[in-house]
Amino acid sequence: MTSAADDTGLPRVKLDYLPALLVPGLMIVAAPLIGSGSTWATLTVAGLAMGMMIFIIASGLTLVFGLMDVLNFGHGAFISIGAYLALIVVVPLAPWFAADSLPLNLAGLLLAILVAMAGSGALGYAFERVLIMPVYGQHLKQILITMGGLIVAEQMIHVVWGAQQVAMPLPTAFRGAITFGDIAVEKYRLIAVCIGLVVFGAMFLVLNRTKIGLLIRAGVENGEMVEALGYRIRRLFVGVFVAGSALAGLGGVMWAFYRETLTANIGGEVMIMVFIVIIIGGLGSVGGCFLGALLVALTANYTAFLAPKVALGSNILLMVLVLMWRPMGLYPVAKR
């Protein structure tokens, strides 16, 4: 993988594989500490599932930041709104979810996800046009405005759906666990891992195999140059923002089913982890975000088992360690 120039003339980019080794490294280090193999496997799968959900939520945020330098503190609102929009499907189609049949349950889940993604994507468009567009390039105002948007959005959820907790029961076929020997894996977590992998794969393909993906990656690296070449980076940005909001909505649905209850501040709870993830990943890098999400979720799960009192502190510790090793995150983006 060294920089041997090939026929087309451009030197190949050196592949930086060290951060990718962190995830298996962490798993291996944790194994002797936990001791029992089956517990370790259960914790690992659970951690991977949680990591996938966090990745789904965080990926949009990191791209939005990378592309336009906009950090959306209101991202959490799309998580909550996505989860609540899923209720539009979950409540009238309750028999579908209660039925013990995998196809019916899956169809219901997919429908809920589609509604949530469409709704939170549309809201993301409005949010971008109304709130963020007037303050391009002004960091302080962006932070304040998106915080204000978060407050208003959370309160509007209370207005529309009421302030009380809503139950969001897991579809019947996803309940329980599959056991391999003495390793128990919850079914829903498997589904979360699958959906996460699909999203990661789709994103990877779009970013690396399409023209739009090329433009997005180029925009993250050097937006001015992309504009100078005649592409409208703002239009691209709106698209990425909408996609990111839709993904947050998807993550919200997954997270709400995972917790089985729904409150308006569900987004705020996840956002802390999401911020840690994108800082670890290197603010703008999708690959870094993916690794960061897995690292954070695995660390959280392992420490929750080994030393439950310090579970949340462990994420901060992980962030400090990563930043001491690479001050700009695992995969720093060139312009920063």
Binding site: I145, G148, Q155
Partner: peptide, 12 residues
């Protein structure tokens, strides 16, 4: 909610 709206308006 109303103070949040006031907040956003005052930032602008």
């Amino acid at each position: 909610l109303w103070l949040g709206v006031l907040f956003v308006l005052s930032v602008y």
